[in-house]
Amino acid sequence: MLPCVATVRVVATGTLIFLIIGVVGVAVLTLALLGTELLHFGQPDFDGPVSTEAVAGFVGAFGFGGAIVNELLGARTPGLVALAAAGGVVAAVPTAWVASRLGRAARDMPTDPTPTRNDLVGALGLVVTPVPVDGYGEVRVRVAGAPVKLNARADRPIPVGTQIFVVEALSETSVHVETY
């Protein structure tokens, strides 16, 4: 019977350091792309000449690229570790550019304005709770493509299931309706 021999691969110190740098860079990049405004000092509207996303992308790619090159070279001397660092820079520059472009695209993405009470006027919907003459019922309308449930008043009683038309927005959550 052969003795059980466990083999352990020793990771070079340079590789471990590069991997730690890469993990830190990716963590900061993830937070920056999610909009946490990490490391946002001074004037809140000033990003500076280089974005946080670009720096974090550079650091992450530098760390992982350096670790790959370090392992491929079997770098155990300072000269080979410096060569591995140069390989990390080669990987980091395009990654920083892509991260910067992605961050800018996310920040500058056009969005629709938030609907206001004026957008309620003219909406079509259905009565979901009967609307009495002297009180409020409930209606469901679509505003900006989303279903919204609102309190509703009317000049005459309206039963459940009746199609309605919003005539006036009394507040952000209540409307005056007529049958359609």
Rank of each mutant, 00 (worst) to 15 (best):
M1Y: 05
L2Y: 10
P3S: 07
A6L: 15
A6K: 09
G14M: 12
L16M: 14
L16V: 13
G22N: 13
V26F: 11
V26E: 04
V28W: 10
L31K: 04
A32I: 09
A32D: 15
A32S: 13
L34H: 04
G35N: 02
E37S: 15
P44Q: 09
D45I: 01
E53R: 10
V55H: 02
V55W: 03
V59S: 12
F64P: 01
G66T: 01
G74C: 11
A75K: 00
P78S: 03
L83H: 05
G87C: 07
G88T: 06
V89N: 02
P94E: 10
T95E: 01
V98L: 14
R101M: 14
G103H: 02
A106Y: 07
A106S: 05
A106V: 10
D112G: 10
T114K: 13
P115I: 08
N118S: 10
D119V: 06
A123I: 03
G125T: 00
G125A: 03
G125K: 06
V127H: 07
V128P: 05
P132A: 00
P132I: 01
D134E: 11
G137H: 10
R140F: 00
V148E: 03
A152P: 06
R153M: 09
A154I: 00
A154Q: 03
I158V: 14
E168R: 15
L170E: 14
T173I: 08
V175C: 01
E178G: 05
